[in-house]
């Protein structure tokens, strides 16, 4: 019946309507049974037998009330007959009803509907850092980082020491060189002085005298130098001639 009745919770079958036709001779015995198995308690939940014995064949259309039997009780149905004759054009109709709000939880519009709070499953959180492989890798990276840092610090320290050593050496060399220079300068000076070829003026102290500006020029009108201008013009003319003569020579 799963493929016949809608699988609605609370569905009840109220009536079974069936029809069929018998083909038989009036004197022949014939029993026709329409039945449905009881899917819960066994046996049959519906069983109707028509006795056509001694009757002419005909069509039967029968309505049988079953009083609202729940859907879960309705098992497979069948039409069987025993005797002499035949059954043709059988048809069985089940009338049913169901409450769409039989289970209020099926529709929020049903009275009595309760908003369900879903059970949130407790999920065991797995910290990937707890994984030994990952932890080992992290430890390895940390170790490498520490080693790199130590190496870098060591190199920085060495570099710093080298720099300091270089500075000290240069300073020392500078001092030494300056001392040597001074010594050489002093020796050369002594040698020159030993020659005694310098005049006394060489040794004379020059007095620290300040020579002040004594000439003061008074503002006056400067006369026009016409001669100088004429000379300047003549030089320009001569210059232009010289330049032009170069181009003439090219032609």
């Amino acid at each position: 019946m799963e493929n016949l009745l809608p699988q609605q919770a609370g569905l009840q079958v109220n009536t079974v309507l069936y029809k069929y036709s018998t083909i038989k001779n009036p004197e022949d015995p014939l029993l026709v049974t329409i039945q449905n198995e009881n899917a819960v308690d066994g046996g049959y939940i519906f069983r109707e037998t028509d006795d056509w014995t001694g009757l002419p064949g005909n069509s039967i259309f029968k309505v049988v009330g079953v009083g609202g039997q729940p859907i879960e009780y309705w098992g497979n149905g069948e039409i069987i007959w025993e005797g002499v004759g035949d059954v043709v054009d059988p048809s069985v109709i089940y009338t049913y009803q169901y409450d769409t709000c039989f289970d209020p939880q099926t529709d929020p519009s049903c009275p009595g509907y309760k908003v369900e709070i879903p059970d949130i499953p407790s999920v065991e959180t797995v910290d990937p850092l707890d994984d030994t492989i990952i932890q080992d890798e992290i430890d390895r990276e940390m170790t490498m980082r520490d080693e790199d840092e130590e190496e870098r610090e060591r190199k920085d320290m060495e570099q710093k020491e080298d720099d300091e050593e270089e500075v000290d050496l240069e300073t020392v060399l500078g001092i030494v060189e300056r001392s040597l220079q001074n010594a050489q300068d002093t020796a050369k000076h002594n040698q020159v002085m030993a020659l005694n070829q310098f005049s006394n003026l060489y040794y004379q102290q020059i007095p620290d005298t300040v020579y002040r500006e004594t000439i003061q020029l008074k503002d006056a009108t400067m006369p026009r130098n016409n001669r100088g201008r004429s000379l300047l013009i003549a030089q320009d003319v001569l210059h232009n001639k010289l330049v032009k003569s170069q181009f003439k020579g090219e032609r």
Binding site: K19, T22, P26, V32, D50, D51, W52, G54, L55, P56, G57, N58, S59, I60, F61, K62, V63
Partner: peptide
Amino acid sequence: EVEAVSDAQMSAYDT
């Protein structure tokens, strides 16, 4: 004639 019945016994109406 009887066309159909709701009880098999009614089939005898024709006779």
